[in-house]
Nucleic acid binder design. Structure first.
Lengths: 146, 146
DNA sequence: AACTAAATGAAAAGTAATCTCATCCTTACC
DNA sequence: GGTAAGGATGAGATTACTTTTCATTTAGTT
């Protein structure tokens, strides 16, 4: 007796995975779920792993790394390097944005500036580059930390 | 009998080190020398280490890492993270600039755009951030690689 | 329900970077 | 110029992060 488990949300998650050519497995669903529900914008593989453990899920660290990398390839998440030495992942919500990062507390704010985007495009064009991606991070000290 | 080894160039390098509060040692001089003379703008610690080996210098990798980090602290070099997973170092020449990076051949071009700089400052101000640094990298495919 | 291929978990391996500590070299002082 | 003291170095151990391997499990198909 199959109960109607699939909420609309879960169905759409299923589709995201299928659309990416990935089998719908428990670990993948749980990780996607966590990324969507977490209030943390950027999560490292370790963060994801630990939170899953706390939730009682038994998912290996290797799987977390593997799945996050696959999600990146599928365009479901974006990987950032910032200046920390390890990767953090952010759910791709379609809206490109840049980052402001507090070097004291780690706080991250997002922003977009159309003028900056335009200038970037024109610079790339001038130099004969076809843009595939770009990354703008402003490091500083936030209001609360001063 | 000490011969007059010090060219003007070497003297200024000496001063750079002293000014940074660092003893003038052979490894530091060689590394600084390499960074100044290399035609590679960005070098990883491994790059520096290997090139020194090739030049017949016997400088340990640990020293290269240590010295580059000290140079960074002293403002002699700038460390970049890009999206490669490891750090690269660039000699600090006083002129701030951003980067265009070809993801196929690794080619790096530098650029500055005053308008972008201004917009960054105004965004940080709006949000109450005091900027300490910023990093803008445009990833793409260069003319030659297409 | 059974089959096939892909996905997973645990442990091993691989990288980049840092640390430890005995030895060496610079600098400051005589 | 010689010498003492403390910082600097090199080799190897160590850490942190990430990827790979391989036996087992699971999802999607028949």
């Amino acid at each position: 007796m199959m109960s109607e488990q699939g909420s609309g949300e879960q169905l759409s998650r299923r589709d995201e995975l299928k659309g990416a050519g990935l089998k719908v497995t428990l670990p993948r669903m749980k990780i996607l779920d966590l990324l969507e529900k977490s209030n943390q914008i950027h999560m490292s593989a370790e963060d994801v792993y630990r939170q899953l453990l706390e939730m009682g899920e038994d998912i290996g660290l290797a799987t977390v790394y593997r799945v996050l990398t696959q999600f990146e390839g599928a365009g479901l998440v974006k990987r950032h390097h910032f200046d920390t030495g390890h990767s953090v992942f952010e759910l791709e919500r379609g809206d490109h944005h840049d980052h402001l990062l507090c070097i004291k507390c780690g706080r991250v704010e997002e922003f977009i500036d159309e003028m900056i985007e335009k200038h970037q495009k024109s610079i790339a064009k001038q130099r004969g580059f076809t843009i595939t991606d770009h990354s703008l991070v402003i490091y500083g000290i936030c209001k609360q930390c001063r």
